[in-house]
């Protein structure tokens, strides 16, 4: 896991605009910072899985009596429906803001 965290953070720092400014280097990469959350997730996930595939003999730490699984039914609750409907609602509303406020 550590390998995943470290590599993701390092790559993200290279992509970060602030760091490019601090060290006065321009790599010619301009990525809107919110993307860094996506790259962080993807890189750390890939590296963590890769490292664990290559190191087969690590002792597994399991927590006794602790087993969580996500089932399809978990998503079938009213809170999820409300939030999804609200999500679509704010997208539509925002699309029409220029008309409503204009």
């Amino acid at each position: 896991m550590n390998a995943g965290i470290i590599s993701a953070v390092v790559v993200n720092l290279v992509l970060s605009k602030t760091m490019q400014q601090v060290f006065r280097v321009d790599l010619g990469i301009h990525v809107f910072w919110i993307w860094l959350n996506v790259t962080g997730v993807v890189i750390s996930l890939v590296v963590a899985y890769a490292v664990s595939a290559f190191t087969k003999h690590v002792e597994v730490k399991a927590i006794s009596n602790f087993n969580v699984k996500i089932k399809k039914e978990d998503f079938m609750i009213k809170e999820v429906y409300i939030l999804l409907a609200f999500f679509i609602g704010i997208l539509v509303f925002s699309y029409f803001i220029p008309v409503i406020f204009g």
Partner: peptide, 12 residues
């Protein structure tokens, strides 16, 4: 900068 790029890895 470091703390703002940590969100993704922390979630994972």
């Amino acid at each position: 900068a470091v703390s703002s790029v940590f969100y993704g890895p922390v979630l994972v």
